[in-house]
Amino acid sequence: MTYWLLLHFGIAVAGAWMARHYALRGNLMDHPGERRSHTVATPRGGGIAIVAALLCAGGWLLWNGPDQGQGTLLPAFLVGLVLVAGIGWWDDHRPLSPASRLVVQAVAAGLLAMAAGRDSGDPLAAMIAFAAALVLVNVWNFMDGINGLAASQAAIAACGFAFSLQGDWAWLAAGLLAACLGFLPFNFPRARIFLGDVGSGALGFSLAALLAAGWTRSTAPWPLLCLPLCAFLVDAGFTLLRRMLIGERWWTPHVTHLYQSAARRFGHTAVTVIYAAFGGVTLLLTYLLSQEDARTALAATVCVYMGASAMWGILRRRVRG
């Protein structure tokens, strides 16, 4: 496992370095604006390094992994990853309409769902895979707005999956963890390159695939797998709901998430560390509750989400006040 982690860490480091130089040469930059949280022009597209690491991990596991290529979920994940990352890479170079991106994401989600349903024999697994892919791809895109936040939260979730899953998917989660850690020095505490849509979408899709795999491959009760996703789902979910209720164009870029308001007041580094601390608590709970029955795990997960929702409401009022 140590060599596996070092390999994918190294791929991500090398890939991020090359992506930064590519972006600088091609003027692939995110410029400051009223709908952005950064103040200096910064290269984007660095998430291609994480995609490269995941494709290497998935390709090797497909042929040599513990499961010896059994099942269709892993091949479907790799094809879907190429689709989601590819449309994100295109959007990083030449902005596309939200509808065109959503169509490609839906195709990738459909492939993942069909494979999840076929491998498990459970239609519910297919529905969860489809919903998780569409939701998490866009949540990670919405929440990728300050230094280190999206990559660190993906690393925390990947750590939970690596602990909870079995076979190929535990190894894939470990590869994702190492790749995120390899990218983070380029993005935190000072951002020398951003993930871009290629990276944020790929992270969300990868976590959705791990969540789908957990339906049949988890050693812990399945609801616990949702715990490390809590901070992003609560912030993105309530912010999106609020924007819908007040009639805003919710699909357009904005700076009204809790993490964005907090970053303007306290700085990027402090907010990313606070979110990471909350993620650490969810990891600890995942470990402590991993031997409990499904009913207890579900109740604990619901309680955590309710508590996080209450915290979101309180902190939003205080930060904006």
Rank of each mutant, 00 (worst) to 15 (best):
Y3K: 10
F9D: 10
A12E: 03
A12H: 12
Y22N: 10
N27L: 14
D30P: 13
I50G: 00
G59S: 03
W60Q: 09
W63L: 01
D67G: 05
F77R: 00
V79A: 11
G80N: 05
V82I: 15
L96R: 13
G110I: 01
A115T: 03
D119Q: 02
D122F: 09
M127D: 00
V137R: 07
V137Y: 01
V137P: 04
N147Y: 12
A150D: 01
A157C: 13
F163G: 04
S164Q: 08
W169M: 00
W169T: 00
C180R: 02
L181R: 02
N187S: 04
R192S: 02
I193W: 07
I193C: 10
G196N: 05
G204T: 03
F205K: 03
R217A: 13
S218A: 12
T219N: 14
L227F: 00
L229M: 00
F232I: 02
R242V: 09
R242Q: 12
R243C: 03
G247H: 09
G247C: 05
H254Y: 07
H254D: 04
T256D: 13
H268S: 00
A270W: 13
V271W: 11
Y275R: 02
E292A: 14
L298W: 15
V304D: 13
A310T: 15
A310R: 14
I314E: 14
R317H: 15
